[in-house]
Nucleic acid binder design. Sequence first.
RNA 1: GGGCGAUUAGCUCAGUUGGUUAGAGCGCUGUCUUGACAUGGCAGAGGUCACUAGUUCAAAUCUAGUAUCGCCCACCA
Length: 924
Amino acid sequence: MDKTYNPHELEQRWYQRWEESGCFRPTGKGEPYCILLPPPNVTGTLHMGHAFQHTLMDALIRYQRMRGRDTLWQVGVDHAGIATEMVVTRQIEAEGGKRDDLAREDFINRVWQWKQESGSTITRQMRRLGASADWSRERFTMDPDLSEAVTETFVRLHEEGLIYRGPRLVNWDPVLQTAISDLEVVNSDEQGKLWSIRYPRTDGRGDVVVATTRPETLLGDVCVAVHPEDARYRDLVGQTVELPLTGRQIPVVTDEYVDPEFGTGCVKITPAHDFNDWEVGARHGFSPINIFTPTAAINDQAPARYRGLDRFAARERIIADLKLEGLLIEEKPHAMVVPRGDRSGQIIEPYLTDQWFVKMDQLGRLGLDLVESGQVEFVPGNWINTYRHWMENLQDWCISRQLWWGHRIPAWYDEQGKIYVGRSEKELRARYGLSDDRVLRQDNDVLETWFSSALWAHSTLGWPDPKRMASEGFERYLPSSVLITGFDIIFFWVARMIMMTGHFTGKVPFEQVYITGLIRDSHGQKMSKSKGNVLDPIDLIDGIELEQLIDKRTSAMMQPHLAKRIEKTTREEYPNGIPAFGADALRITFTALAGHGRDIKFDLARCEGYRNFLNKLWNATRFTLMNVGQERLPAPTDSQLDTLSRWILSRLSRTITEVDQALADYRFDLATRALYEFVWNEFCDWYLELSKPALYEEAEANDPATALATRHTLARVLETTLRLLHPFVPFVTEEIWQRVRLPAGVEGDSISQMSWPLAQATDTAAEADAEWLKTVISAIRSARTELNLAPGKPMPLLIQGGSEQDHLRLERFGDLIRKLARLERIETVASDFDSAACATALAGELRLLIPLAGLVDVAEELARLNKQLEREQKGMEQVDKKLSNERFVANAPPEVVDKERRRLEEHRNTVSELRKQIQRLASL
RNA sequence: GGGCGAUUAGCUCAGUUGGUUAGAGCGCUGUCUUGACAUGGCAGAGGUCACUAGUUCAAAUCUAGUAUCGCCCACCA
């Protein structure tokens, strides 16, 4: 084995072998365990959030597979309507073409072609990370069978009256020219302006003043509203005012919606371009006046002077005209909320169009019930509040998009505009008796992407086709066990899956939802291209040179002027680029950081620390192999095991229990920590060191049984530990395990197919012995360092006092203490021995004396002892205070009081010992 | 405006139902190339647990309030 752990080569080697062996497929035996991958966008590349979530999913899948569960990790990719259409459109434009020059069918062919070439980036990257998914069952949301599920869903919902089409005000993206759902609108706080405009009264008795942030919409005003109780405007109600620039007269109405405190208390009402105004207009029976074209230019409803101007130009001209007519009273800065499309970043217009909607009242109630009743459980539990709040305030879901790429809506129109919905044109002609000479035209729109991903849980298991459902294991794998995802798609996806799977199958899609935090940079900033702080998980695995990293971060920027600053900070933060940590180090860093309910600041130093940990494991293996050889060792019986071996096996068992518990609670951080501490602080720091003396030649000659037991235990503990670590760091554990399995006496082809270790009974006697030994050795080492005694210099140790058990232990472990604390010899001295010329360390009642023989100055030793004394006294006082409180003694449980009493006793002893020694020393 | 969360060592975080002297990693200090590992060993320094009041024999932990910082949701022109 190499002296240093080198992830690159070994990681390349193992994935392919695993995948080819088919060991990631469900076995069909044992209790099913299933995880659904939230299908990433086909346009996507693996980002830190994916890598994090995939690591958690893979750790669970591998863990449960080892425990004998029948695991299915259902993976797949989403067709991502808008995102994909944008990518391919950009590609066409880069070639000098235009999307609109292509026929719909040709464009769709281009998309499929693009998918063929570039659509598998992310699944390739998942393999690099070690994701043990069943790729033979990988699905794409536009696959024929999933598309069939989509059509079936649409048709059935329509038949049930849960889907309808109608003219409604929707969120319209004038650049992409499609409707989007409420969820796809992000409200951004921006600095705008508020204009006050005068509307003259037609009766000539002055005018009213309205305030608006969108003066161009005035062209579509239908009335002015005031609050019914507003005394100022009582004489105005029922009158009309003149709408500037239009020559129209509009009435004044009263409506509760108006806040008399805001502005002048008069509101212009534009039902076609504002969601509130729509409601107000409807209450008062006004028809909305739409003034925009689909690209948000002024249409023919407006006076000729403004027609054809886009929304921003129209605003400027209207302001100018109002000024000219003396109707503009005031213009002032105004903080406002601007709706923008989450994909395009463009300002969204409320716009009146015909769209398809899913009714949400019934489905929403179902979705809420399934969670409230505990059939779906959120982890951490408080996410239920977020979910509940949203489910209780659901709006109907706008599912149609004016795009080409996606599932085309299964609705056809005849020449009269009558709508027919059906699974296909053929089915529908048969059903409605429409002869072939009747012309039917299919709806041009497609369904939004989330409509198909909402079906992911059951459509990937063959629904609605009974034959496929049987062969794919619909009954067996639904509901899935746990969904691991970020809070950002609780509404987009989690809620909709619960509703759809619940409605169509009567089952829940998953039993638990584990909501992860967001991966941020080491300063807590969200990672984003414009901030230039994005880390690519693949770069952490493979490493990247500084110049390449800068290039990556500053190329293809939306705002090129930021490039310079990004380059500067990148140079400062990564002067040597990023080293190759390997997939395993990245994975275990993620699991170590995965606490509950908190965002994660990703710090490269952590990743480096875990890379070092794997190096430690690697070298512990080298040590083990050097000492146990390559041959299968005979297993000692329990009675042949030495104390230290029993100790480390006991600690190992405790570690197994801890990891099991942590994973049951989704505490990946605690599981990782338990393993880290066991491997480093117990196995490497102590067991390996303590095993060395037993393996020395002369020791082996004296005590061959212990040497053999030690060898076997080394191999056994290491092999078991590798299995415990495997779900977290699959590659390196496989590599090492292949070398360790033989001496450990284990049969199997791959660690990924081995069973999960079971915790054995613990051995508290052995644990107590080992703790005693560690305390004694540490006390001697500490004294030696504090006295500046050369670590290599052999010195004698004198033992004074101590219990019978101390002396029994000294007898048993004397050699070990001598070797590990680098002592020349250990000698017991009588209780009246004058220890004045010695440094003292205490281990319980046992006094450990190091003869100074003029080596150290007395003042230094005095200072050291005084420091200890101070610490002890402080502790003693605290305990004493507690115990002298009558109410504590009376009220606290007896075992707690006893414990405190014992502590007090110990403190007293130590304090008196220290005092004595200080006195002796001072008298010198 | 409503909701959720955070505040513990220089930095990043643990701290399970209240009960040893509040822990770890990174960083820092000293020291050691001892036959697994310098991506290391050994030893150490470092904290009024944001603040205030309360409950309790006992509070980092429970309650109320205050402050600061995040995030989500919401129709104020």
